[in-house]
Nucleic acid binder design. Sequence first.
DNA 1: GCAAGGTGCTTGCATTCGGAAATATATCGG
DNA 2: CCGATATATTTCCGAATGCAAGCACCTTGC
Lengths: 148, 148
Amino acid sequence: MTQTSFLAVIRLLSAQALLEQKFSQELGSVHGLSLNDSLLMMHLEQAALSRLSRVDLAKRLCVSPSTVTRMTLPLEKLGMLGREADVRDARLAYVTLTDTGRKVVAAARQTLERKAKEVFKDRWSDEEVGTLANLLGRLTASQPNDLV
Amino acid sequence: MTQTSFLAVIRLLSAQALLEQKFSQELGSVHGLSLNDSLLMMHLEQAALSRLSRVDLAKRLCVSPSTVTRMTLPLEKLGMLGREADVRDARLAYVTLTDTGRKVVAAARQTLERKAKEVFKDRWSDEEVGTLANLLGRLTASQPNDLV
DNA sequence: GCAAGGTGCTTGCATTCGGAAATATATCGG
DNA sequence: CCGATATATTTCCGAATGCAAGCACCTTGC
């Protein structure tokens, strides 16, 4: 069991490195976004009011708050993200998804969906992919909201 | 199917970010190694003659060759890794695992195994962990040698 | 009302990483 | 043997990231 757990974790780390390598380049050249940029915007996409606080985003992405600050800065200048204050708490600076951002992230999502389908194109049955998604979902269940 | 593939990929990326966060800190403070350092040394551990070329390591870790050069430099100074030339090809500079390195990576592996077991401690049956490991193994099958 | 501690955000600094270029060596075609 | 191409490694530079510190604001307890 300890061996199996270890194997699962090691393979998960390796698989992620492989996928990130496959996805990053096209995502960057086609949409000008990094993989993490896309994930950030997808979190906003499905959030209530299309907005989330920076610490909330940090938790969902498993990155530090300072990273969120620096990631949002250029996207804000490009008009994909906006900033919104909270009426009750002046500390909060919500990150919002603009209409432009919504279009861009929709296109990025299509690219990701296509690449994802390629990953499982050969030698995978629908049921196997579903099982994998379910099991991984139990790992991420401890986290804030799921994407998709 | 395209939705399921996408879900699986997104969750895989999220799960990795979560696991890396959980593992990195203790691995660094206890053994002075990063997660990637440990993976690099584990690849050497199971390699023939305990040595691999830098490009080979780069492929296995899904990082650039320059990253391998920079990663190995401090570990070499610490006496965990060595350098070995090839008799036939003077371009090759094998990275080797020293006896010191072997002890350190064995300890790091134990830490990783313990943390991996914790991940699946609750709400996971042995069979489920095994299924996850198998499915992930099919993703990494296209890569050079598997760890563990 | 106020002091103490907690939370959200940003900035400075150090570390890590990928890509391009440079160097050295190997291989192949003639 | 020679030139062209390919491969292995390293270095330089720019981009991304975490942590610690600082600032602003909120909340709690008195």
